[in-house]
């Protein structure tokens, strides 16, 4: 669906490039994530893909056609969920949505009432957006991005500013969109979102992609195949996963006292990121 080869970009007036020869592919129906700290170049790459930034180097093709050759039908095909809420505060939620809906073919539009209900905003549809919390505005961002049933959807930090319950709901909606065959490109520095949502992630730092793979593979490759056992007495010990059932010392240790917890020593995505880049995702 999306092929990017050697994408480089330098902001006008900047000395160093923000993106350095990025190459990646996103298949149809896949959720692909850019995982990296703030300033890594995630949003810049997305902005180029949704044609807000021009003057890049490299090749980008969408459905086999060069990005630069796509006309306004490309914008009809994509949806964009921005990182920060951006709405007319003096208009109601419904007026905001109706305004932007006017730019899309009517037959493609989803029912506004259904969209508001989907994100739990149906009771606030006629309220001015200035009375909304950040979380409510972000949910409005989300439904604006999908109101015209786009094939490709870009989400920039889709769960930023949301409480855990609403973040969960948005993640579920994103997974539901994938189930419908949508191609989704997410940028995030939220490891939980990336881990739960993405089929594949690319680690990006200082404008470079360091590795691209599925979260499960990355965690497997960089974690330890072992379990850590902790007893209520405070004693802890690690045992290899291999043939754990036949491991006599493991069984003996369990008999030494009351068990508190057993954890696998699989790496988290954040740990993998730090191992590979030497940088924290929270930077």
């Amino acid at each position: 669906m999306i092929q990017v080869k050697n994408l480089s970009f330098t902001y006008p007036g900047a000395q160093a490039p923000t993106l350095k020869a990025l190459s990646f592919e996103i298949s149809e129906g896949e959720i692909f994530g850019f995982l990296g700290p703030s300033g890594a170049g995630k949003t810049t790459a997305q902005k180029i893909l949704y044609k807000i930034l021009h003057g890049f180097e490299g090749e980008i093709s969408i459905k086999g056609k060069a990005l630069t050759h796509w006309g306004k039908e490309y914008q009809e095909m994509i949806g964009v969920g921005f990182e920060l809420p951006n709405h007319y505060l003096k208009l109601t939620a419904k007026e905001n949505m109706a305004l932007f809906a006017a730019f899309y073919p009517k037959e493609k539009l989803l029912r506004l009432e259904d969209l508001f209900e989907m994100v739990g905003l149906e009771a606030h549809i006629n309220k001015k957006v200035e009375a909304f919390s950040k979380g409510m505005k972000m949910r409005l961002n989300f439904i604006r991005a999908i109101m015209h049933d786009p094939e490709i959807i870009f989400f920039d930090e889709p769960t930023a500013g949301l409480d855990p319950v609403n973040a969960r709901k948005i993640r579920d909606h994103i997974l539901a969109l994938r189930a419908k065959g949508k191609t989704i490109f997410i940028t995030t520095h939220n490891m939980t979102s990336a881990d739960e949502l993405c089929d594949r992630v690319a680690f990006i730092a200082d404008g470079e992609i360091l590795v691209t793979d599925s979260p499960a593979t990355l965690k497997h490759q960089h974690g330890r195949e072992a379990v850590k056992v902790e007893l209520k007495s405070g004693q802890t010990e690690e045992f290899p996963l291999k043939e754990l059932g036949q491991n006599v010392s493991f069984a003996d240790f369990l008999r030494q006292g009351e068990l508190l917890r057993i954890n696998t020593l699989e790496a988290t995505l954040e740990e993998v990121f730090i191992q590979l880049t030497g940088k924290s995702l929270k930077a």
């Binding site: 914008q75 964009v80 921005f82 951006n86 730019f103």
Partner: peptide, 17 residues
């Protein structure tokens, strides 16, 4: 105001010149 509230960015991804 449209620029301050970043709504102008939304027009940037709309199917219009």
């Amino acid at each position: 105001e449209e620029k301050e509230q970043e709504v102008s960015k939304v027009y940037g991804v709309m199917p219009i010149s």
